[in-house]
């Protein structure tokens, strides 16, 4: 079980959190995208072997969404950030 250092609550066990997905900004104008570009956004993530920036929800803590930089290979957590405001 990973330790996720929540920027609001401090280090907490992974099972307090929900891992959502990689950080992929929502297109500003979905209507401007082709069908292919849109399905790529919805379904295709990079799923890298190595470092990835992800959205996590501290559901059983502060209920804030945070950004977690995690290595999918070594399970290191390099850093976390609060949601951008």
């Amino acid at each position: 079980m990973l330790v996720i250092p929540c920027p609001h609550c401090g280090p907490r066990n992974e099972d307090e959190f929900v891992c959502w997905s990689e950080v992929v900004p929502r297109p500003a104008d979905p209507a401007a995208l082709s069908d292919l570009e849109w399905t790529d956004y919805v379904y295709n993530h990079a799923n890298p072997r190595g470092w990835v920036r992800e959205q996590w929800w501290h559901e059983h803590g502060c209920r804030r969404w945070i950004i977690v930089e995690r290595n999918t290979l070594t399970h290191e957590v390099a850093r976390t950030e609060p949601a951008p405001r």
């Binding site: 929900v18 959502w20 959205q55 929800w57 559901e59 209920r63 969404w65 949601a83 951008p84 405001r85």
Partner: peptide, 13 residues
């Protein structure tokens, strides 16, 4: 709950 909070906090803050 998760969906709405994600949109409010990450997509449309």
């Amino acid at each position: 709950h998760r969906h709405l909070e994600r949109l409010l906090q990450l997509v449309w803050p």
